[in-house]
Design a protein around this nucleic acid. Sequence first.
DNA 1: CTATTCTTTACACAGTCGTACCAGAAATAG
DNA 2: CTATTTCTGGTACGACTGTGTAAAGAATAG
Lengths: 190, 190
Amino acid sequence: MAGRPVDHDRRAELLEEVVDYTVEHGFSDLTWRPVAAALGVSTNTLVHRFGSKEQLLVAILGRLRERILEATGELLGEQHDLATAARVAWTRTSAPERAPEFKLFFAVYGRALQAPGQFAGFLDRVVADWMARLCEAQGPDTDPATAHRRATLVIATIRGLLLDLLATGDRDRVQDAAESFLAALESPPG
Amino acid sequence: MAGRPVDHDRRAELLEEVVDYTVEHGFSDLTWRPVAAALGVSTNTLVHRFGSKEQLLVAILGRLRERILEATGELLGEQHDLATAARVAWTRTSAPERAPEFKLFFAVYGRALQAPGQFAGFLDRVVADWMARLCEAQGPDTDPATAHRRATLVIATIRGLLLDLLATGDRDRVQDAAESFLAALESPPG
DNA sequence: CTATTCTTTACACAGTCGTACCAGAAATAG
DNA sequence: CTATTTCTGGTACGACTGTGTAAAGAATAG
């Protein structure tokens, strides 16, 4: 009793390439065939690994969220204070080379808002992931309510500024606003 | 030389209903036939008025932007100061009955970020509309650079908080953060 | 080698998409 | 009324969608 062994890593390998493709070509018109052609495999290879179109989309946005967290938020909780964490977060998220990734992020975000049942996992974590890290950065002595309020404001401001930057490309103006926000975070007890 | 007169208002009438439908049913899977069925007309009636699918989408997001501006930003420039204008803007945008409209707004926003050529008009105005009004609210004596910086920050914060609110539904936490932001706007020269 | 299991592919199918075409209804001017 | 133009609906067509089925290729154990 034997047979070819199951390749447990194949799905993850394909997923990386699929996410790359999606970052570049967009999320709204994603279909099996063009993706498969770009990866040099058949459509059924993808279907075999991901099950269905909906499961593919869920896998994509799950991996996208992971990537962004790894690249921009992984070490946020280890910063000494909220202002430093916020500055690190903004510097990383506003880096030009991350723009395509965040455009996809907001495309997914918007779609999830209109299909909350399908993408519930994304909406659950999209704020909570950062909230936990930014609360942690404020230390255990901070009043929880205050910590949550500050963290909420930091997440919102960074994402709002990022929306502006990605839409207008006006980096000077947005960076100027970001600096004033970060400076205000650093100077008073906020 | 005669003939049936051109009905110049028909397109606008249909557009209102189409936007209503889109707010309710989402933007990503919008197709002619279900929309036409919901409006009680044939698909060709819609095609006749809007020309093509792409033109329909452009018309939808244009009208959506107008609606939001009418409902939440029309009088912003007439406020006496930025803090008051920001409070009015937040109160209106965060109203529960506007949630579906803003979910569509962010869905369109995200899609526009990934198809900038197609929706260039949306991206051009999505920040500029509010920027003009929020600068106006700061009066003619404010330094332009400062006015732009503050307006950018207000727009970003409100939209970021709205993203959070729509994703998590945690109104208490978001409103708490919004209050602290608005209070900071009101007390010092910021 | 054979047997077994997994992987990948080619093909087919029903359904939906946007849109072009055409005929009839509706509304005007003369 | 007729002539003319617009509006609307029915139908059709090619392209593309997700997915099911079946066969071929690849990798193991004995």
